[in-house]
């Protein structure tokens, strides 16, 4: 339960990291199982790939990539937090730099589609 003492950014970051991790652990075996058909039964894979036209499957693929990036950034955040003895000003500067570059990359990405 989200009690009063948990309503702060770091705790929410922890929660996101944990949820994305658990979701990936559930999702990835399924993902690799489907991919394994490429080796064992290509026809079945083709059949399954037809499914990817479905909106719901498209959405869950988006979810997979989203979870991967959330989890990766969570991990990078933790490593920076624990391995770099930075002052909080330096951490803020680094976080702003990442945010700015994400924004720029996002703009280019939107122009591409």
């Amino acid at each position: 339960m989200i009690r009063g003492y948990r309503t702060h950014t770091l705790w929410v970051a922890f929660l996101l990291h944990r949820i994305s991790g658990v979701a990936l652990a559930l999702f990835l075996p399924l993902h690799f199982w489907v991919l394994s058909y490429a080796l064992t039964a290509p026809e079945t894979l083709d059949g399954l790939l037809l499914w990817t036209d479905l909106g719901i499957v498209k959405f869950s693929e988006f979810g997979l990539v989203f979870l991967l990036s959330v989890h990766m950034f969570g991990g990078l955040r933790l490593m920076a937090l624990e391995w770099l003895p930075w002052t909080s000003g330096q951490k803020t500067a680094a976080a702003s730099a990442v945010a700015a570059s994400t924004l720029v990359a996002g703009v280019f990405f939107l122009r591409a589609i």
């Binding site: 003492y5 948990r6 702060h8 950014t9 770091l10 705790w11 922890f14 933790l78 937090l81 624990e82 391995w83 003895p85």
Partner: peptide
């Protein structure tokens, strides 16, 4: 787990999470 509740609630505004890191 670096949840940081220690640093948020410390009345003297210390940061035990940094010390643990």
């Amino acid at each position: 787990h670096s949840q940081g509740s220690c640093a948020v609630h410390c009345p003297n505004e210390l940061n035990p999470m940094n010390a643990i890191a």
